[in-house]
């Protein structure tokens, strides 16, 4: 119990005094996870939209692959990314292993199916008659798509929230492809693991608290966006 109390006190102290190392780690966590979420939105929403609207051969299989991907274990993604990025691996020439970019790649791979899956559900839950109506009113293709996305905005924001929540909390892939290098690829989750193995539980609790606060702030902002005027 005292560890939890001291950890909370430590978290407040680290935040109030703007401890440079903790600030650095927190900022990096935000940058990596936000960038990864952004990329996954760019990938996931178009894929989700196409899968929701188009009928083509192999669609059912693709949708089930996306749904399967939503539960992709981060550590497997981490291993796959690691193997691809190692010096003598297929993408070794890029020299990306143990960089923040490698972490962004791994996290984007984790989040993209989540975003795509939620997008499919969001668009398909729009009443089919609405789609007909939009078309009947003479909307162009682009207008039709934008209107549909607009109507599905609640679900799509949920997709972004879920994607972000998935990557900011994951540790396996970040540890593997980032390497937890101090001042470079150390993020809140990997720092927490390290501090536990160092036996500094107060600091680990403090880092976890900051991670929770961060995740809460971002999701709260997105939820506000989602729920406004409702």
């Amino acid at each position: 119990m005292s560890v939890i109390g001291e950890g909370l006190a430590e978290a407040v102290r680290l935040l109030v005094t703007l401890d440079p190392e903790v600030m650095d780690i927190t900022l990096r966590t935000l940058q990596v996870s936000c960038t990864a979420t952004f990329i996954s939105v760019l990938i996931g929403i178009p894929i989700g939209t196409v899968l929701a609207l188009k009928r083509f051969i192999g669609r059912g299989f693709t949708v089930s692959m996306v749904n399967f991907g939503m539960g992709l274990p981060p550590v497997v993604v981490g291993l796959g990314t690691w193997l691809c990025l190692t010096r003598y691996g297929p993408f070794g020439a890029l020299g990306l292993l143990y960089t923040p970019s490698a972490m962004i790649i791994a996290q984007a791979v984790i989040a993209s199916p989540i975003v795509a899956g939620f997008t499919i559900a969001a668009i398909q839950s729009i009443h089919p008659k609405l789609r007909l109506q939009i078309l009947a009113l003479g909307a162009t293709r682009i207008q039709y798509l934008l209107l549909l996305l607009w109507e599905a905005r609640l679900g799509i924001l949920a997709a972004v929230i879920a994607g972000f929540g998935g990557v900011i909390s994951e540790v396996g892939a970040s540890m593997m492809v980032g390497g937890n290098v101090r001042g470079y690829t150390r993020v809140l989750t990997t720092a927490t693991v390290l501090e536990v193995s160092k036996g500094r539980f107060e600091l680990a609790t403090a880092l976890s608290t900051i991670l929770l606060a961060l995740a809460f702030c971002i999701t709260a902002a997105l939820s506000y966006l989602q729920q406004r005027g409702r």
């Binding site: 935000l30 940058q31 990596v32 936000c34 960038t35 952004f38 970019s101 962004i104």
Partner: peptide
């Protein structure tokens, strides 16, 4: 939405710059 995108982008740029 634009604000958020901007935020994501700066993150992207900064990370790349750091690299």
């Amino acid at each position: 939405l634009v604000f958020f995108c901007g935020f994501f982008f700066t993150g992207l740029l900064q990370v790349q710059k750091a690299a």
